[in-house]
């Protein structure tokens, strides 16, 4: 029997003592695409950051198994080198560090001895072209002054070149126009294969027209409240997140209306 790629078991997470994730369990097998949907504030980015080992979050209970090994306490860089990749919802600018230098350094870290400096130029150029990114991108500074769309393409560019085993895409579709969404989705689809597992985090079902998920999960207040197949996306399209909104958010929205009206 083949081992799951990622197994999250009863994961509880706090930030600054405040509980955010309250018992998440989720299994992603090789070759699968799981969509994780949910309203703002439900804990989607928290989960992706925790999977990447962000030091600000505390795992109070539960485990993260990657390829059968306990990764719960592993450092961020070791996770990345093992093949976990996070496409950030809000990528950070690193002024003064060029995209080419950054990507080359990351590839060296990821592939070690196997990294071929000689073929870097070619594969880098190829990946730029495939994502419709202009070549002058190479000399620009990482995420510095990038538009929203450029940031997302840059994340997918790195994902393409770093060849992860598990890719977590945190709202990579947000803020993209339809053309950019198509290009980025094609970029993701090109990477799909029997080895790669994808956790596609999204607020909208729009991207699911382009990147077909095997499973869909709905996150609400730090818990997975529903899991199902593609049909769940269509249902969500009709009903929206209304049934999944937090009571607090509803109360907030109602209050705001009251003030305005």
């Amino acid at each position: 029997m083949s081992q799951p790629l990622l197994e999250i078991k009863n994961l509880h997470v706090t930030i600054e003592g405040k509980p955010i994730l309250k018992g998440i369990s989720l299994t992603v097998n090789r070759g699968e695409v799981h969509a994780l949907m949910g309203p703002n504030g439900s804990g989607k980015s928290t989960l992706s950051n925790v999977l990447m080992g962000h030091p600000k979050y505390t795992v109070t209970q539960g485990t993260i198994l990657f390829q059968g090994e306990d990764y719960t306490a592993l450092s961020t860089d070791a996770r990345a080198r093992a093949g976990i990749f996070l496409a950030f919802q809000y990528p950070t600018a690193i002024p003064g560090v060029s995209v080419a230098n950054f990507v080359r350094t990351a590839m060296k870290a990821r592939f070690g001895e196997a990294f071929e400096a000689k073929s870097f130029r070619k594969s880098f150029k190829g990946a730029l072209e495939a994502l419709g990114i202009s070549e002058n991108f190479a000399t620009r500074y990482v995420n510095d002054g990038f538009s929203g769309g450029e940031k997302k393409r840059h994340e997918v560019l790195q994902m393409t070149l770093l060849k992860p085993r598990l890719a977590i895409l945190d709202e990579t579709d947000s803020g993209l126009d339809i053309d950019a969404l198509k290009t980025v989705s094609e970029g993701i689809n090109r990477l799909r294969g029997p080895e790669l597992g994808i956790l596609l985090i999204t607020h909208y079902q729009r991207i699911l027209d382009y990147v077909q998920p095997d499973k869909i999960h709905v996150l609400k207040e730090g818990q997975i409240v529903r899991s199902g197949g593609k049909e769940l996306a269509l249902e969500l399209e009709k009903t929206g997140y209304k049934p999944y909104e937090t009571e607090a958010a509803e109360a907030h929205a109602a209050g705001a209306k009251g003030v305005l009206g």
Binding site: P55, T76, V97, F102, A106
Partner: peptide, 20 residues
């Protein structure tokens, strides 16, 4: 965190930031 999430060790991440 961003740099370490790409596999760079902490000292290497710090060095890249200094050079930048």
């Amino acid at each position: 965190f961003y740099l370490m999430s790409r596999g760079l060790s902490r000292p290497l991440a710090q060095r890249l930031i200094i050079q930048g």
